[in-house]
Nucleic acid binder design. Structure first.
Length: 230
DNA sequence: GCGACAG
DNA sequence: ATCTTGTCGC
């Protein structure tokens, strides 16, 4: 497991962080379809915190897109690099997540993030940020609608409705289990929304949340415990 | 002006 | 995110 320090020049204030988002946003690519669902690799990333000790642990888990078998995994630990501020989540997670991705023995393919991409106050959420910094195709899958609105999708798995910022569709509320609260999908970098939703459905044969995030979540929690103790 | 607000 | 027992159900 690799260890990371807060990068030199990392934003120290909310104002600086917002300025970084406004600058990097111009580099997001939205006109590529993205990797075809059911091919290659799909990688989940997630982080766990110990705010008390100022520690963050990140995990990256690579799945075979067809079998959903885990083919590789990596972890990294670091210092918390930013406080939690809605809209600035990426500044808390990105350095350690990057380290975990770089520690993988193979290319990650599509990266599935825990949170949002385009669905963000300045249209540059965690998935967008990670995509621009790595050049990889990324999507965001969140458990909550954040500040956005949506109509309840129809009952069956696979149903969806637009996730709205006013009249703008910034993502999709996608039902991954019959009658269960939907997940909230938005594009990050180099993927279209339809492709993103198709990936999420393939990644949810058994549970509401994608296998990618479930496995990354379990792995980073374990890494945090090994670092910090019981 | 006062909350609400991904993780 | 995290704090947290038991419990209902497949």
């Amino acid at each position: 497991m690799t260890t990371v320090r807060v990068p030199a020049g990392w934003p120290a204030t909310e104002q600086q962080a917002r300025a970084v988002q406004d600058e990097l946003r111009a580099r997001v690519v939205h006109d590529e379809p993205g990797p075809p669902p059911g091919t290659g690799y799909v990688t989940g990333v997630d982080v766990a915190y110990d705010d008390e000790r100022d520690v963050v642990a990140a995990a990256a888990v690579v799945l075979d897109a067809v079998s959903l078998d885990t083919v590789a995994e990596a972890t990294a630990v670091g210092r918390v690099s930013f406080p939690y501020v809605p809209g600035l989540l990426a500044f808390r997670e990105v350095p350690t997540v990057l380290a975990a991705l770089e520690a993988l023995p193979c290319p990650p393919g599509l990266v599935v993030c825990d949170g949002y991409g385009l669905a963000h106050p300045r249209r540059f959420g965690l998935a967008s940020h990670l995509g621009v910094l790595t050049g990889l195709p990324t999507i965001g899958v969140a458990k909550n609608p954040f500040t956005f609105t949506y109509d309840e999708p129809a009952h069956p798995r696979g149903s969806s409705s637009p996730l709205l910022a006013g009249v703008e569709e910034v993502g999709r509320a996608l039902r991954t289990r019959d009658g269960v609260k939907p997940v909230f999908v938005s594009v990050g970098h180099r993927v279209r929304l339809d492709t993103a939703c198709a990936h999420v459905l393939r990644l949810t044969p058994d549970y509401r949340l994608p296998e990618t995030t479930r496995r990354a979540d379990a792995l980073c929690r374990g890494a945090l415990r090994e670092t910090v103790g019981a």
